[in-house]
Design a protein around this nucleic acid. Sequence first.
DNA 1: AATGTGTGGTAGC
DNA 2: ATCGCTACCACACATT
Length: 968
Amino acid sequence: MPINENDLELFLESTSILNSSSQNSIDKTTSNAELSNIEHSTLLIPQPPLLKTGTTLSELKTQEGNDYCNHDSINETEEGGKTDSIKQQEKNDDAFEKMHSNNNNRSCNKNNSYFNPMLQSPTRMPQRYNNYDEYMENKIFQQNKNDQKLIAEYEKQFNKTYPQIFKNTNIYINGYTNPTRLQLHKLIVLHGGKFSHYLTSKRNVTHIIATNLTSKKKIEFRKYRVVQPEWIMQSIEANKLLKWQDYALLLNDTNINNTTDIKTLVTKDSTKKPHLDCNHPDFLASFFKNSRLHHLTTWKLELQNKHMKSNPVGAHHNRIKKIIYYIDFDCFFATVSGLKHNENSSLPIAVSHGQGNSDIASCNYAARSFGIKNGMWVSRAKQLCSTLKILPYEFDSYRKISETFYELLYDKFDTVIPLSVDEGVFIDYPEDIDYKGISEKCMDIRNLLSTKTKCTVSIGVSNTLVLSTLCLKSAKPNGFKIFLPHNTEKEAVAKFVGSFQLTDLPNIGHKTADKINELYSPSSIITLADLQSNLSSLSSFNKLNKLGGKLSRKIILYLKGEDDIDNISKINTPFNYFRKKSLSVDINWGIRFQTIEQVYNFIDRVVARLASQLKSINMASSQYTIKLARCKANSPIEPPKYLGMGLCDITSKTGRFPAHTNENYIMSPEIKQSFRKLYIQAPISSLRGISITLSNLKTNNDRDIGSMLDRKTNNTLDNFPRLHPPLPHDVPLTMSNTENADQMVTVTPLLPSNDNNNNNNNNNNNRRSIEKRKSRSPAREFFNNYHKKKNQERAKHHFSTEIDENALKELPLEMQKEIQREYAVINLVNSTKRSALEAPKIIPKKKLESICCFNPPIPFQKLLNPKEITARLDTWILQNIERGPRTDDALLLVQYLRRLVKFNKKSMLLYIVDHLEEQIDYYRSYYRSASDDPQTSSNHHQMPDGILQWEKLLVLKILPLRESKNRA
DNA sequence: AATGTGTGGTAGC
DNA sequence: ATCGCTACCACACATT
């Protein structure tokens, strides 16, 4: 079988997308014509071959021996006839080339060490990156570092310094050049220039070197200094920086800035940060930093944790009254921002980020008099009031004033319940009602807050929460209202309530209001009095029930000024009422993805955030929901709001983790699996929002609370398997190397070491719920096997790694399979001497017709059954996870997958690619979470080089195949 | 009947 | 430009 050299370059791959040396190898590639599409769909540009064209697999093996990266011998065969000086020069070139193609130190393991030892990085930095962007940043950093090393090396070798001709330039080379990109690169760097491998941010690049440009590029580069390579050469010759204009490639363009000042190309102020792309690692942080709604929700939690108190002194005693103060700042954001900017509060003011389709977070009463409302877009508000002043958010001030607010009032009440940054419920339990005292208290509070915060608050006082809410409504702005009816004054209460609007009632928003109006149409219900009168007849009373039993009962109570059970428990047992039940992150702004990998990275980041939040509150979750927003089919591609979500279809999916967990590496793959199920064949670009919710929360230390919250799973992750320690790097494990079955491999058992854990009492319950779930990820696999084993252990009182054939036959077929699989895992784990190839053949072959419809099935290592294939791949991955895949193994796999593409074996391809993705993803998440954890990141939990290699294989070679399938 | 899933509504500025 | 969050409940419907 001929080797496609491009593939051999996979792990020696160039990071330079545009590499002049790629020209050399393109025509040498073998004639996999049908794969040319795939080839072009990847970013990978082939490098010059390391092996002679047409090398067979067997030759490859002998050539490589046990160490497939023995490049020295390869070099010798290729360079045998050359003179020493040329050889030396080329070796330098090679080292240089490799340094840049291989510039992640973390991937500089033995596989790739191709360095002049002098140039090799002395330390292997413990690197980790969370996503592609970080990876790129690091890559660029390394590239610059390598440039520095090169300079040092050359200066040492030739014992001279080079004139810094290109100081303060930043040069990018586009396309094929003569001299080559590599040579130019070296020259530029040696002469003090900066070399950019990428053109991602054109702002930093001062010159672009090119001899040819496509017409598209001509337009793209029209405002930049595009110079021919002679400029470099002749500048060096002249020993000074020549005028670039004399070598400009693009002539007669008036847009070119003709000044000699190099810096002027840097058009934008680099201190002014542009908005971060959603693929940027810091996107989440930057978004949340500016999101008012995010602040509102997080503040609420913080404030409740900090300032809530509940002392219902004798509240159950009949004679003790309850005085509920509902206190709220008047148009909080607008007031505070107005103060900060010294605005006249009698003029219309609104707080918002932008000028057009930006939400108004808050507007003052002057603005409201024009009909402007919170949540309205600025453009609309400006139509209503052209003099409206837009102020920026002052989040720090909001938070500060809120702090003052609660600190000042904390000691003045028996019960304090923060409901928002500027709004809380404060309760007294006096024996007698002292009207005068209450109104004095209100005035005192308003004065106090006015002097301390310069803001006005409004207060509603009553004896039920509903009535307090309504009182507050009527007290606004800048006032207070006390309404303390006797029990007998039912008519007065009804009259008071009746004077309010429908949406003034808690839990009735615009949707419910619309619905109520629809129910009673054609008579329109505007005020609560309208509703009260409509409820007098039974038929119209029944209409309300269509809202749902709970809500209608609530409304009926509210109309009488009484609290429902919800409000009562909120007031009486706030700590219970506000206890944490779920944790989520929602992003519905700025979501624009091109590739699925970007989405996966994004999910990774979101889950990492959730995991750390969970850990910080010492909780674990066993259930998740992922919710997606995709733009509606007929809606415009870009909604009116910049980077907004527009009109969307919302779908969600819930799933369960194998057990309660707060581990990133457990959660992330599971959630991504649900994402895949949810996101069927739609273009990634249509994604507009992602939300991930973790629920079924349980406090880690407290089993009682845990079981109270969640009766469904009481598994623990205490015994969750840690991956085996890194394999010795000189032991090759290979898929292709069938013969070498006797190589030694040490594998630490995946099974829990201590079997005397305390989980037994819940086992039956657990087992049922666990086994119901699908088993695909290693985590699931582990728990399935683990619980099964626990069960058997109890029955047998000992552990056997031999299958009892007779006992097995008694069991139903499905069970037999399960047990066989389980024993296979045990055997695999216990064995110290096993080749990856000897994956146990334990799963009975399935009928392949269901998967391969018309064409004959395509074997992989003589296997046909998809499960067998994935099982073998799993073993392969597991055993090589920390050292990365061998190139020839990877090649075998890719070739197999390409055959699937070629013969249109869609489901098989999808099955295997998805599976691989899931597996690699799992390990990646594992190592990432381990390396994120400072306590465990010390030694063997660093992100191993192998993971990166696996990822490269996956992202660059395997996933594109799935995409090519989709395009077909 | 009990339990689970997906959807939709509300609240704060 | 622009930062359209998030916790929670209730319901309809599906599953067992």
